[in-house]
């Protein structure tokens, strides 16, 4: 615009207020010292041979890609990576999301008392402390536990027979409320006219779901998948409290392997390097979902 040039500098440029820095400062300090600091430190430790005890606990050094090389030859690490992906895909991406969606849809159409009671039970399972969930599922799947009696195998300890499955189901049991709540909110926000129109046209329930609800819910689904993946990738407490990664290494997912390498085998450097892989996997999945959400626009 011609006028603008003749009027001198803009008078309404946003100004930085020092009071904002004053308010931000305490939080920033804490984050820098105890969050950003450790993150950067982790990237350093991951490339050293730091140990918890012994000479390497003081006298450690930068070892470049040595930890990476070690991982590639470490069959526990490779198995652990697969278990992690199995856990995330099976328990979280498929199990939790599908059951969460199913619950959200069913609850919408259920009679009020059932909706309230079942909805509350599912949410209580989510709110319970993880350690409690670990305990009750431990009890549930023990030899002589409720599960074995229900299945008529009184003496079978399912936590030994199919440990990964039990751990995944317990995790699913605990987290499904999260996806259920996300999807319920998504369903509630759908334009009701669209659903009614489909109903009036006489579309069957399944068709309606496939060709109307699902596409409309797509952004919600992508968000849910992203969050669920990131949350479950770092799941430690539930699995560790139930199995400590065992029997053998049958349930040693990466977070547990990180802990064991670092604090049981005293390999702080190697353990941290493994945790960086965990971050990489998380970043990979996030990018995947972000791309998926872009494509649809």
């Amino acid at each position: 615009m011609a006028v603008v040039g003749t009027l001198g500098p803009r008078l309404d440029r946003e100004r930085f207020q020092w009071s904002s820095l004053l308010m931000l400062a305490p939080g920033l300090v804490l984050l820098v010292v105890l969050f950003l600091g450790p993150v950067l430190y982790a990237f350093y430790i991951g490339f050293t041979n730091l140990a918890l005890v012994g000479s390497r606990s003081r006298d450690y050094s930068f070892t470049g890609l040595e930890n990476v090389a070690r991982m590639l030859g470490d069959y526990v690490f490779i198995k652990s990576s697969w278990l992690t992906i199995l856990f995330v895909v099976g328990s979280a991406i498929v199990g939790q999301s599908v059951l969460g969606m199913l619950l959200a849809i069913l609850l919408r159409n259920a009679v009020v008392p059932i909706r309230i009671v079942v909805g509350s039970i599912v949410i209580v399972a989510w709110v319970l402390p993880e350690i409690t969930v670990a305990l009750i599922w431990y009890a549930f799947s023990q030899a002589g536990g409720t599960l074995s009696i229900l299945l008529g195998h009184g003496g079978t300890n399912f936590l030994v027979l199919v440990p990964m499955l039990i751990v995944s189901v317990a995790n699913l049991w605990r987290n499904v409320a999260f996806s259920m709540l996300v999807f319920s909110a998504g369903l509630r926000n759908l334009p009701s006219e669209v659903l009614e129109a489909a109903e009036v046209e006489g579309a069957s329930a399944w068709r309606r779901y496939r060709s109307v609800i699902l596409p409309l819910l797509r952004p919600t689904i992508v968000t849910n998948l992203l969050l669920v993946t990131i949350l479950n990738l770092s799941e430690f407490t539930l699995i560790y409290a139930m199995t400590q990664g065992g029997p053998g290494i049958e349930t040693t997912t990466l977070p547990i392997y990180v802990y064991q390498e670092a604090f049981v085998f005293h390999q702080l450097g190697y353990g941290t390097a493994i945790s960086l892989v965990l971050v990489l996997i998380g970043a990979f999945f996030s990018l995947l979902f972000v791309r998926a959400s872009r494509r649809q626009v």
């Binding site: 009027l7 001198g8 803009r10 008078l11 309404d12």
Partner: peptide
């Protein structure tokens, strides 16, 4: 509540920009 991009605003004889 909004600062002018250019110009002056006066209340009484006081410049209030």
């Amino acid at each position: 509540l909004e600062r002018p991009s250019y110009g002056r605003i006066l209340i009484g004889d006081k410049l209030v920009n």
